[in-house]
Design a binder for these strands. Sequence first.
DNA 1: TTAGGGTTAG
Length: 705
Amino acid sequence: MKSKELLSHLFEACNNGRSLAQLHSQILKNGLAHDSFFATKLTSSYAKYASLETARIIFDETPHRTVYLWNATLRSYVREKQWEETLNLFLHMVSTTVTTDQKPDNFTIPIALKACAGLSALAAGQMIHGLIKKNGKIDSDMFVGSALIELYSKGGQMGDALRVFEEFPQPDVVMWTSMVTGYQQNGIAEEALLFFSQMVMIKRVTPDPVTLVSVISACAQLVNLKTGRCVHGFSIRMGFDSDLPLVNSLLNLYAKASSVNNAVNLFGEMAKKDVISWSSMIACYAQNEKAVEALDLFNEMVQKRFEPNSITVISALQACAVACNLQEGRRIHELAVRKGFELDVAVSTALVDMYMKCLCPVDAVDLFKRMPKKDVVSWAVLLSGYAQNGMANESIAVFRTMLCNETQPDAVTMVKILTACSDLGILQQALCLHGYLVSSGFSNKVFVGAALIDLYSKCGSLDNGIRVFEGMAEKDVVVWSSMIAGYGIHGLGREALQTFDRMLRISVLRPNQVTFLSVLSSCSHTGLVEEGIKIFDMMVHEYQIKPNSDHYGIMVDLLGRTGELDKAMELIDQMPIPVEPHVWGALLGACRTHHNVKMGEIVAKNLFQLDPNHAGYYILLSHIYAVDEKWDNVASIRTLIKEKGLKKMPGYSALEVRSKVHTFLVGHRLHPESEQIYRLLTKLEVKMREEGYVPDVDFLLHDVE
DNA sequence: TTAGGGTTAG
């Protein structure tokens, strides 16, 4: 074959990789293997279609390496994200090449910069930046410009990225996109949207699908469905609606905005789906209380022979965790092991989380101990997992181990430990943590402040909570809601209402479902019936927020507490959503308080149909009978509970002595100082009676268990 | 002869 003919075959091979080996031997036969031009073509074809190793061998064996050959080889490594190899080869190039046709050019520089960005080697990138500044020609190249922007954004230096951007009088769409992406990936989504509008409205640069992906991701980050939908419309008008990454980012937007129907429709309409599409849809279900659908979709995906990746597995595990589905969780664990995903720190962390949420702390800890690599998230999951399983001391111990270890807690971990302590009501720890938060600078974060307010309120130190609240320069809706809930917990309904009023008056914030929940529960705890009804009305009509099951539960509780049992029943009858057991439970509790056996029986009938295995509700009904001295009925419920083999989780109290939490159950004498404790209790009781305390005998009922 | 920016997760 002539070299001209070979050349045309070679071009073809570059496009499809066919008969590459055959071509290679022809080139060898014709003695053209050492020709730098042929070597370049072969190298890029091998790297793209066959093996990077062979490509490297060809590179190594070529005596005269032109800049084209260097660039082709470097690019092959970049494509495979082998950043370290890329950078090493680049350094090799810089230190060995002598002639002009071998020196790095404006094609080489972006590749080298990309490797630095991939390795988060900001200093190395800055050095290259310094070198190219001396060469004006490269400096004004937009390929170099966007690579520099990427380098600085990956290193979190958006100021430097902006400085590079501003050096270009007419940045192209890629440079604009790099800036938008940079802001989005650094969590400054507002700035990303601002940049995008400047690009489109003022500079009239037409965005492409890549730009829109970043814009939609920014909308997802801000949970800004309105703008996201506009961008969706725009992308359809531009004809980008079959761009896979773009549709995937839209799926993610709808997932984050809890717009499950939109996501389902979009997913259904997709002509082509990749593993990211499936993962996004599974995550959408898992994160929007549709665990069954998430697991069904995961199984469908596996059946259709789509290969799940580690992220798919993480989302499926999340679904198992929220559904408390241990069986499915173990099955997916086996699948993860088979695929070698268990070595992935994110997957093993998701597994620890799943076992913890399925109330299997032993399995979780066992797995955690075997993890070869642990990062701050793994520790955070372990810590909050212990707290979820009522193992307070272990949870605090993990936090201490973390501090002594090389892993420094981040703001999210701090919120987790704060929540763990608030569930336990341990004030001493709260004070310590607050000190640490101030010294570490985390206390400036809004969501940390919200958790701190919650912690202080639940530890009985409302004053400290108020102090944190008043000291916060920036307050979001969560902060206000925590403060309102804090007042509510302490029975200060009036103060809760005042705080709610203040929020509406002095801020532009819109109360959400949780805010109303906090206000309503404050009203309920203080017996402010009329105010509660007004607030409920305000939520539905003025703010157009659809009440959920929790809101109805609290309203029933509120009406029930003051004896308005008929009104409570009426409210349940009018509920447009399915009545969950706890709503009936609230009414059943009210029936006990107000001795209404007749209604209690009706309520219990409904309740037992919905939740036949909840011991607490049977006991509640038996108490209603006991007050009315219907001992036959009490006895038959007792038999029923025994027959069904139901057990009620006993309540317990916990207190903190010298940073250690002690828990106490009714009648339990396991504590080493139990003798003395009970002696003191008897003394206190005597003293209380002397002061005029009369116990409410109505509630001193028979132990039906 | 060779290019750049993007989507899912614990």
